[in-house]
Each structure stands twice: as C-alpha cells, then as structure tokens.
Write a protein that binds this DNA or RNA. Structure first.
Lengths: 126, 126
DNA sequence: AAGAATATATCCAGTTTCGATATATCCGAA
DNA sequence: TTCGGATATATCGAAACTGGATATATTCTT
C-alpha cells in the first residue's frame, strides 16, 4: 500500500472528477480500484480534501437523497454529496498536471541510475 | 521556482550525497545549479533535514576547520560540517527511488491527457 | 570599512497528516 | 428480526511538517 501525500491526493481526486461527477465514498473506491489497490484515500483524508476543493471553488456540490427500494417513506434516506469539477477546477487540474510533470522531469535529473552506484570519489575533505 | 516537499527534498539530498560527501551550503547551491534554479532548499529546510538524516543513520558527519589563506592563526576559522552517505543511506536511497518510480507509474494512470478533456460521460447517478 | 557571500543553526506560527472516532443508513444472512 | 458488514459523510487531535524570519560568525570583494 502506497500512501499518498496531499498534493498527490488532490491530483488524483481532481483527475477522477475530471471524468465525471462523483461522491466521497465512490471516489475512494475508484482510486483503490484504478490503482490495483496501491493507492488508498481514507475518509479522514478524503472529506477534508473535498471540503477544501469546494471552498476553493474547484468543485460544485449538491446533495442527493438515495431512496432505498423498499424503504420507509418517512425515512430521511441515505444522503450522498455529489462533487462536480468546475471550470476553475479543470483549469487547476491542467495546471497541476503541468507542474507535476515539470517537477518529475527535474527530479529525474537528480535521481538517475548512476546515482545508485560507486560513491568512491574522493572529492571531499581533500 | 518550484518548491520541494520534504519527501522530494530528502530524495534530492540523498541523491546529491550519493555522488560524494558534501555540506549544507554546498548541497543547497548544488541543487539550485543542477536544477537550473528551479529547485531551492533554504537553510531552514536544509539543516533540520540533514540533522534528521544524521539521526536516522543515513549519513555520517564530521567537522572541517576551513583555514583562510591569510587568516589569523589564532582564529577559530569557519567550520564546515561534512555529510557522507552511509551504507544504510545508500540502501534507503535505492528504496526511495524504487518507491518514487512506483508512485509515478501509478499516478500516471490517473493523470493521463484523456483526463483533461470532455467530462460528458453519464456514468454517474445510474 | 562596508557589504556581499559563505556557513550553520534555531524559532515559531501556521498547515498538514492520518489513525481514531462519531453518526447514520442499507442490505443480506442467519 | 436481529446482527454484522458495507455504504456514506464528517470531525478530532496529537504529531509532524513548512518556510520565512532570525541569530551568529567568518571570509571575500571593493
């Protein structure tokens, strides 16, 4: 199981929402499924993140009352909060992907296979 | 200027030290130079990080007294703390690179160009 | 002699992290 | 019909992290 940092979590959630509207629980299942169980975003990571996205205007939200098949008509029913990526969210995602790729490319300059071998050089303390 | 998160900072510092021993200020200049000024690790990020690496046994350290050319013989001189990647540090670096690549590869599954286009699909609410 | 560069290091207020916890509904099995 | 697992959203709080500001001291350049 690989743990996701906030930045990566946001990137993944925005990416999932770019496909279409969804809600917390479904997003979390989606992430687990689409990463073959390697990525996991727990409720305590998911909901503060979604709230933040909402506050920043990257998503719009709406409640759905999920009526059960044979449910008590008086029952409140299970509530589901849908998240839809806004225009701002789409732009933000594009921006983040760009940023992500740039960081990757520069990082790769440091993390080359050559770095893993012989540290025998004597360019110190001389 | 791209800001580095702790994880990336550690990866970069370990990578720099894999080439050979160095010290805080030099590492920070090295990172700026080797990233064309895109990455920056400030003193307040660098020294706590180096201390942590030392505490975790990923580096060994030693002080060097840097005598100036025409310096006062009684002068203490400038002190330089050298950091050398330990065996444990080398192993840790290899491990982190592996982890980094794995995260990248899975992340790329989410962040595909296709995600940036038309979110018209109706696979919600069904 | 002043100021920029070299060099290491801590402080601290704000943010992030993430397991634990709380609440409530729905569904299938015993 | 009752129990447990799955569905579903949300907060708490201790610990860790972040990064600008600050402190200290030496050396080089002008």
């Amino acid at each position: 199981m690989l743990t996701l940092k906030q930045d990566h979590s946001e990137l993944v959630v925005l990416s999932v929402l770019a496909i279409g509207p969804s809600y917390g629980y479904a997003i979390s299942k989606d992430i687990a499924a689409r990463s073959d169980g390697h990525f996991k975003l727990s409720p305590s990571g998911m909901y503060p993140l979604l709230t933040k996205l909402e506050k920043n205007g990257l998503v719009t939200t709406g409640w759905e009352e999920v009526k059960a098949a044979g449910a008590d008509p008086d029952s409140t029913g299970r509530r589901r909060k849908w998240y839809t990526l806004s225009d701002k969210g789409h732009k933000q995602l594009t921006k983040r992907i760009e940023h992500h790729r740039q960081v990757q490319s520069i990082l790769d300059g440091f993390v080359m296979p050559s770095n893993q071998s012989a540290p025998e050089s004597e360019l110190a303390n001389g």
